[in-house]
Design a protein around this nucleic acid. Structure first.
Lengths: 199, 199
DNA sequence: GGTCAGGGTTAACCTAGGTTAATGAGCGGT
DNA sequence: ACCGCTCATTAACCTAGGTTAACCCTGACC
């Protein structure tokens, strides 16, 4: 069973018809750590499904910083929404944060199947619903939390990701420099020591 | 013609069937500036359509800050995605940033119509697509731009909103305090003066 | 007219995080 | 074993923004 099928049918909540039309267009790709899946600026209307490993989506600024928009680990799907819209291009790049295997499908195929079958349309809508839900949470964290709080929430919420990517990437996600993240970590350690001493 | 119908049919790209089933559940509400539409923490599975005015969506922290997630002006729709999901609650409040009139529809109705008619399902999917697209852009701005750049982008991209809300709300959107925004503005003014002097 | 409240500005001070640079640990390649 | 690389840490210094408080302006209300 392909990761794509599993993920899409979980979204739809039912089996999806015409999978035999999908199969031949499903591309599988394995990536080494650090290998690029796609680059910002490309027209890239594909949806990805993570089979194994972790993909990081990054915004690269002209100053050379690389801020991490999101991580996608096993069983997640992702895409550049901007690139799915007609004539759109990705504003971020996707890079393997550790050895990974992904599957991809062209969005126009999903779009067509959506117009033909309510089950597919439902899967797509649920997919966008979930995507929006995640983005809403990310936006809230960036707006309301301090850097230290964002770090703590990240390691609590995604421990399975935190332990498999570099601190550098975590810093990019938390939106601080690696130096600042190191300081934040030592501050936390210090506080934990103090609490232990007090008790 | 209601704002909701106009917005939804623009999303669908075609007329929507069974509008007579929608009409009786469509609620219209006018708000004075500062009046609350809904509060964070509520179960609130409704989609809103802005007829006139501007609604701000805000995250209120326990420290008493109010950060502005987004503004919705004329012809926009919005909802708390988290509250649309079964059992979910809003994590933000919606407040009129100036006198406003909105229409609302219960999401379960849209969900049902989506399951019945491909046109409705398409409208919903396009709606989520657009919502995700906007959130993606917001996330990028928060990750890659400095406070000053975020302010400049905001007044360039949404001049019709910028001139109708208070600086206090703009500061909340840019994610700085009103004091810092004032400083940013005077810094920009200073730079413009210098450029004029140089030329 | 006077008063009051809220928004915007400015100044003084403080803190968190950015910047640069030096140091050391881990690791693959030769 | 050695080199070279990347990553994490630490220190020194700097800057942007937070905090507090004083001030002014405007508009609503009495």
């Amino acid at each position: 069973m392909s990761a794509a099928k599993e993920i899409l049918e979980r979204l739809a909540g039912c089996p999806l018809p015409e999978w035999h039309h999908v199969e031949p267009l499903l591309r599988r790709k394995t990536l080494e750590s650090g290998e690029t899946l796609f680059l910002a600026g490309m027209a890239h209307p594909y949806v990805y499904f993570v089979e194994t490993g972790i993909i990081k989506m990054i915004y690269e600024t002209c100053e050379g910083d690389a801020w991490v928009k999101a991580f996608a680990a096993e069983d997640r799907f992702f895409a550049s929404l901007a690139a799915l819209l007609p004539g759109g291009v990705t504003s971020f790049s996707a890079v393997a944060a550790c050895p990974a295997a992904v599957e991809s499908l062209p969005y126009h195929l999903l779009d067509q199947l959506g117009d033909k079958h309510p089950q597919w349309q439902r899967a797509l809508r649920k997919g966008f619903e979930l995507y929006g839900f995640r983005k809403e949470a990310r936006e809230r964290d960036l707006l309301t939390l301090s850097a230290g709080e964002r770090y703590q929430r990240f390691i609590e919420e995604y421990p399975h990701i935190a332990e498999r990517v570099t601190d550098r990437d975590i810093a990019g996600y938390v939106r601080v420099t690696p130096v600042a993240l190191s300081r934040i970590k030592s501050r936390i350690k210090l506080r934990q020591m103090e609490e232990k001493d007090a008790s």
